[in-house]
Amino acid sequence: MRIVVVNSGEPIYRQIEQQVARAVLAGELRDGDPLPSIRQLARDLRVSVITTTRAYTELEQHGFITTVPGKGCFARKPDPAQAHDQLRGEVNGHLREAVAAARLAGMSAADLVGMLERVLREDDHG
């Protein structure tokens, strides 16, 4: 599995979490596939152990991995409904953040919707 950490302002634990979650959803990681241990992953990515622990904790809470004490961490195929809810929840969270930022910036609802439509168009083309 490929995990890349960049300095994007996005917290590192979330970058790891999202990439593992995507690998599971895309079927790149199959049910029961072993994942690197928390400490091994911290070493490989050169990030702190707390960061990888947090990423794995969130992944486990969201049902993408399971931890077997003494054995390690394994990918887990979430049931489709759960995966869908999870992604919807993420979208909702990001939208809330966008709305909060838009209010701070004094943007109108129309401005915000316009911006969303533009981003969607750019994404379709990209």
Partner: peptide, 12 residues
């Protein structure tokens, strides 16, 4: 040095 430290910590 950072590599060495990262290695050390991976053992726990």
């Amino acid at each position: 040095v950072l590599d060495v430290l990262a290695d050390l910590i991976s053992g726990g």
